[in-house]
Nucleic acid binder design. Structure first.
Lengths: 115, 115
DNA sequence: CATCAGTATTCCTTTTCAAACATACTGAAA
DNA sequence: TTTCAGTATGTTTGAAAAGGAATACTGATG
């Protein structure tokens, strides 16, 4: 009688666009942190990620979405900041919705895997 | 009227086990090539991957499956070789089955994404 | 018109991780 | 008992990505 290890299915999903991967869970987290902190700088700190990279991700998202997901405020009181556009907020919601549907499906459909 | 880019959902799935990721599409391809060529060396060549790495992947798979997926033949005429065990063959089938079910589901469930 | 905090951007260092290299080991068969 | 092709394994190298570090830019506000 074999010792019966436990195996389960993991899945990672992302939105793809003509030029390649467009939006995955990493960028979604970044969006959430921008929403929460009001700036790219603080979002990056929160995630222990370099500002440089966070900024690049935002650039890419904005360029490749039909309409920008993040609105950036330059200069002024507090130096500026960043906040989500409506499209940005919708992106978060939509992503999690899709993810949940898929994960629920997987949980239902796959059990007792053996290798 | 916006230019309507096309977005779709991509998914990558793998089998997870206590110690982490256990079996994804990369290892499945390796299994298939071992099956096809009869050795790790030739499978690796086929995939333009270093023998060393292919061998390590096989080791890992074998250790972490309940029963080895690849049987290795050492020395002898032709130097030996490798072939799939029954468990190895089942792994391939099972993996693709699960993948197909999930991808079909995604295709049905998600269309007209907008960002 | 100086300040200030966040955005924008370049450059350089470090880390990581894959690929390449090198070298034993194995055992059937001639 | 030599050959041979594949397995087994350590070491080295190198390229790409991540991670700082440094610097300029922006504009509301006092």
């Amino acid at each position: 009688m074999p010792e019966n290890k436990k195996y389960d299915i993991k899945v990672r999903l992302w939105i793809e666009e003509a030029e390649g991967p467009f939006l995955g869970i990493g960028k979604i987290w970044l969006l959430e942190n921008i929403q929460k902190t009001g700036s790219i700088t603080n979002a990056a700190k929160e995630m222990k990620m370099a500002y440089r990279q966070a900024w690049q991700l935002v650039e890419e998202m904005n360029k490749r979405a039909e309409t920008p997901l993040v609105e950036k405020l330059l200069g002024g009181k507090g130096g500026g900041g960043a906040r989500l556009t409506e499209a940005g907020e919708r992106a978060i919601t939509l992503f999690y919705e899709i993810e949940k549907r898929i994960k629920d499906f997987i949980e239902k459909e796959t059990q007792n895997l053996k290798f």
